[in-house]
Design a protein around this nucleic acid. Structure first.
Lengths: 344, 344
DNA sequence: TTGTAGGCGTTATCAG
DNA sequence: CTGATAACGCCTACAA
């Protein structure tokens, strides 16, 4: 298309039709330069009549801005992301920006390729939600002065714009709740090792135990990878222990599902025999068959804040000190937590 | 950024640095014109050294192509879409195209505004997955010769490129299964009235009954809107009947969940008292607490096919007869269907 | 084989 | 207040 996609009418034709110069048409349309009210209205009218639409492409080339931003994320199919994407897109929409979506599958080459591609297209800014925390690309973006915001994954060393959630605090709330229910043997299922968020959640677990004066027991920690299967495996591991923990906190809901499924298969009741708390509150967790107690991040807001921060940076041409925005999480109490079993 | 985002190096500088004319650089880089092997390699090298990257913007303006396509859908947060989006994006990625994501929320104004915006940006093509089936915009796109593909929603009158699934056939499979289980009183929960897919599913229901020689009973049909709540309400309606239907087919999984939740609250067992079949097979449906028998569309493939078809159209500059691609669905047997209760 | 000139459609600058 | 001119960065006839 392209040829066909636009009405084919250029500013020159409008100029000719209204008997003025192209630059005057531009001035009239953008409202920037001085232009006599009557010529102005005449120009506007003929533009309207001809169905003139300015070419974003030409304007972008001239102005060196594209009013588009790129989003790099691991995979939209991951149920954590859609709400975040909506948050981003809703904010961009209000400001007339477009969103270019890129799935990287946590694949470094793919990510790098996308990045090059997007840079070539001169997008006005980037939101990085999948970047490996030690990526050099991030450093280069920063060196180049490209406006960008990291979302939910922090870079190990570089101080960048960052929007995330209080992961440690979220787990803290979960454990606090369990403590009030009398739990002391609290297990934890960790998330992907390469995720800063997963690390923070685990740290939150350790910190909360420490604060409660409970000794850390490595046997009560399982390594997962955010999949249902890994939660299943983790639960299987706990079942090998001499005594089952009375409660389990999982770094995400999926693994909590897996664990619960494993327990169910074993005839172990939740929450009577063991309490379970997840993290993410994906919509499934609210269904009556599940009713998972879980930590709810402000997903939409996460995206919205990232987009807002990015637009700010773009406005200031990227020359500001990096900012961090950390959003609080809420503990949603449902049916998978109960008083600790008073076993021996 | 923009200024900063690209390395700031233009084709002229490469030309100067390698002692040739810009056009020669262009020829060398694109490999189109004739250029002596040695100058060619020299040019390539200096380009590499300088870190030259061609400006997509300038190229797009010149070539009138953007290597970007737009996707209009209702809402990425709707669990049906992410897999479709992935399918689209995976195909585009291979061909070096970018995807611009637009959520329309089924809002006509928003959709129209997005459309204008995207047309101004001269995207190479469009995938429409949310357009109201009677939208005039579609007709205009067609008149203008803009390459586009309708996804999962058909236009009432216009003959367009279309990728969809065999909705009627999917429901047919569901009902066939129920028939073999001995069901005769089969209810149906309809989807949004403005969706062609919803209509087709309902038609599939009627057709299947007719074929089985079962008389259509309006009392066994409830109008839903694809939400859990509406499924809940539909089940509540069925509970008012003198006799409960022995099976229910729902136009999507969500409404099936709602219905099951309502039954559960009432102490009615699935599938012992009533069988339930959904449509979509969102991942939740497979969880051990739910195990919903449901019709599974080829979601990823749906997106992939749409993208492929679109790219074809773009290649042929949109001047081909509209094509239709209809994908088959698979009935996934799980735990919510069983033999019909042999009540009086 | 290489270089020159023009144009893709805008907008900014600066004379008039 | 308006209009000519140049420039954004690239590609492509056509000329040399």
């Amino acid at each position: 298309m392209s040829n066909a996609m636009r009405g084919k009418i250029t500013i020159k034709q409008v100029a000719e039709a209204s008997g003025v110069a192209p630059s005057t048409v531009s001035n009239a349309l953008t409202g920037k330069g001085y232009v006599a009210p009557e010529t102005r209205s005449r120009v506007l009218e003929t533009a309207e009549n001809l169905g003139y639409r300015a070419s974003s492409l030409a304007r972008s080339l001239r102005l060196q801005r594209t009013w588009s931003v790129g989003l790099l994320l691991a995979d939209v199919s991951n149920p954590f992301f859609p709400a975040v994407v909506r948050g981003i897109e809703d904010v961009l929409w209000r400001r007339q920006y477009n969103l270019v979506l890129c799935n990287t599958d946590y694949n470094k080459e793919k990510e790098a390729a996308y990045l090059r591609h997007l840079l070539d297209k001169q997008l006005d800014g980037l939101i990085l939600a999948s970047t490996a925390s030690d990526s050099d690309d991030v450093l280069e973006l920063q060196a180049r002065g490209v406006p960008f915001v990291m979302l939910n994954r922090r870079h190990v060393s570089a101080k960048t714009n960052y929007v995330g959630m209080d992961n440690a605090g979220g787990v803290g709330k979960a454990i606090e709740h369990l403590l009030t229910l009398g739990h002391r043997r609290i297990a934890f299922i960790k998330g992907r090792a390469d995720s800063s968020a997963a690390k923070e959640r685990f740290q939150g677990y350790r910190a909360a135990l420490r604060e409660a004066g409970i000794r850390f027991d490595p046997a009560l920690v399982a390594q997962g990878d955010y999949t249902i299967e890994s939660g299943h495996a983790a639960a299987a591991g706990f079942l090998q222990l001499a005594r089952l923990p009375t409660a389990i906190v999982s770094a995400n809901d999926f693994m909590a599902f897996g664990a619960m499924a494993r327990f169910k298969a074993q005839g172990i009741r939740v929450p009577d025999d063991v309490s379970v708390i997840g993290f993410d509150d994906i919509f499934v967790s609210a269904l009556p068959w599940i009713e998972l107690t879980t930590v709810r991040p402000q997903s939409w807001q996460l995206g919205a804040s990232a987009a807002q921060l990015l637009l700010e940076q773009i406005g200031r041409r990227g020359r500001t000190r990096p900012r961090e925005i950390i959003l609080e999480n809420e503990l949603i109490l449902r049916a998978t937590t109960g008083p600790a079993r008073t076993t021996g």
